[in-house]
Amino acid sequence: MSVQDFEKIFQDKIDNETKIEPKDWMPDAYRKTNLRQISQHAHSEIVGMLPEGNWISRAPSLKRKAILLAKVQDEAGHGLYLYSAAETLGMSRQEMINDLHSGKAKYSSIFNYPTLTWADIGAVGWLVDGAAIMNQVMLTRTSYGPYARAMVRICKEESFHQRQGFESLLVLSRGSKEQRDMCQDAINRWWWPALMMFGPRDTESTNSDQSMKWKIKRKSNDELRQQFVDMIAEQIKILGMKLPDDKLKWNEERRHYDFGEINWDEFWQVVKGNGPCNKQRLDARRKAWEEGEWVREAAVAYAEKKKLKVAAA
């Protein structure tokens, strides 16, 4: 069979909603695209623990501390599910981690923003996890089997993340003037970066959309972003807060909210490494990795020693 035949069989499977599994034939570009996307997603879960981890020791109550700890632990698990899915495409965990640490691999820019006050933790849960969920729900139907299965598992765990964030803000929104101000300030700072999570506008793309054809993605950036805006614009009313956008307005004709333009210059600056916390985040990851080296080595030595003991017995 020729490559064209393989490609046709492959595309027929995709068109018939048959999942692609690790040992199936797939075009190189499909493998590469998935590998890049899944590993970036994994890195995002791992780096995403840092801004929230920042508040574990300072959470205002034991209850909030336990909740935040559980959420951050979930994110570590999400990183693991995704690294495992990426490994099925033929890249080792070690290589992926090296690429993250060298700056070659990217992670979601949202995690390069700082968490300045306790209210930021609520805003992250509500807006950042909320935006991620929008994307991840779509990805439960992605065409690569291991990625889709990881997403199903992740989505089951995510909804608590968004709910706890909203509930935490709800408490602040019903609190003192200082608490309400803190709540509004956090929303002001996280709103635009959260919208940027969906990526560049659809019109930025001049080529035909291969990711859609391969059903890696099923909705465009702008579609997902609109869905998110429509959802948040309603939810914020319950908080009695405001989104920092004077162009935000219900459009009866479109049956959607209109909203203002994202600062794309800021978007690309943060992607390129010039965000407020890019350096800090990567330094923290590298430090954790280097300082954990002796633990990884000791575990291997211990496992080998035990094996010898069993063999001798």
Binding site: Q37, Q40, K106, G199, S205, Q210, S211, N221, V271, K272
Partner: peptide
Amino acid sequence: KFYYGDIPEEKGGG
């Protein structure tokens, strides 16, 4: 075209 979690290397500046 790229999406959340899918930023191409050449734009990454790493």
